[in-house]
Amino acid sequence: MSEISDSGGGGNKKHQGKVKQKKSSTHIDMTPMVDLAFLLLTFFIMTTAFSRPHMMEIVLPDKNKEHLTEPPPVNPSRVLILLLGDSDKIYWYRTDDPAIPPKLNVTDFSEAGIRQVIAAQNRLILQLFPDKGMLILIKPGEGSKYKDFVDIFDEMNVDKVGTYAMVDITPTEEDLMKKYH
């Protein structure tokens, strides 16, 4: 290798005084090719690496009738109900008697909002039912956005809430949300 790069022709021939043959260098300037190669390389690395989406998995109960069994009775006192309203609001309540219209409280998706509510309610419910814990029902309202729906599931994951379920909202609850303002 070094032979080629050091001398253009044969070394010994000089001493013999023969006519020197002109030999053109075998080198090609590879710089532009390398430039191009690395440009392409960078392009393909950039476009492939960042295209995998993030995902969240959710599992809902089977709605089909043949699988439907009578749900086990739940004491209403250990249920926290979250209603997703419009403009990023969460209305929540707990009730001991489902027949009486509940009084709503309002909060939002911030860390000081729903996270504190869930933590506080969890503590209260754990005092009453030390072996069972809290059950959360999520009811997205008419005015709620897809973001609210994803955010509340995210919140469940962050807070490590064990049992939660998504349920359809009732017209009474929609009314209560509207009247809250």
Partner: peptide, 11 residues
């Protein structure tokens, strides 16, 4: 009967 699905989100 798809009860188990994925929500595509941003991080």
């Amino acid at each position: 009967r798809v009860n188990n699905f994925i929500l595509i989100t941003n991080m």
